[in-house]
Amino acid sequence: MFFHIVLERNMQLHPRFFGRNLRENLVSKLMKDVEGTCSGRHGFVVAITGIESVGKGLIRDGTGFVTFPVKYQCVVFRPFKGEILEAVVTLVNKMGFFAEAGPVQIFVSKHLIPDDMEFQAGDMPNYTTSDGSVKIQKECEVRLKIIGTRVDATEIFCVGTIKDDFLGVINDPAAA
């Protein structure tokens, strides 16, 4: 789910940026530093939308760098366990399939794909029901439920399931 939240960060600024454009410099450095990053707690920072406040700078002893506490609003993407969302299938293999929802990758193991769907190898590997009516392959849109998240310093990785009511393929551009 996407959220609009306020985050705070201490920005260190080199003295050569002090002057009329201090604020602009601070903001552009902030964007460069945090946009596109990911933390386990807040998820992926997609875009900064505004600056709430820039606090008083504190000169660091010995270096001349100044630290400013900056509060900023941003759009973040944070997946949650139990959340249901839509995703695009990116890779299918005999273990299951990978799907992408924005910046996050979700793996759906074949044990979490309905039992009546069988893996079919070939140049377009896919999972198909025995009557061939439903097919999961690359570029399909699926609705899935996140059942687990793994967080490390710079990445969030999810495990999902489509073995539940109202989950599964919602659209297949290749079949249309």
């Binding site: 596109g36 990053t37 992926f44 920072v45």
Partner: peptide, 12 residues
């Protein structure tokens, strides 16, 4: 733009 931005934009 970052890859995160690009992917999010495509997704939404």
């Amino acid at each position: 733009v970052s890859q995160v931005f690009e992917k999010s934009l495509q997704y939404v």
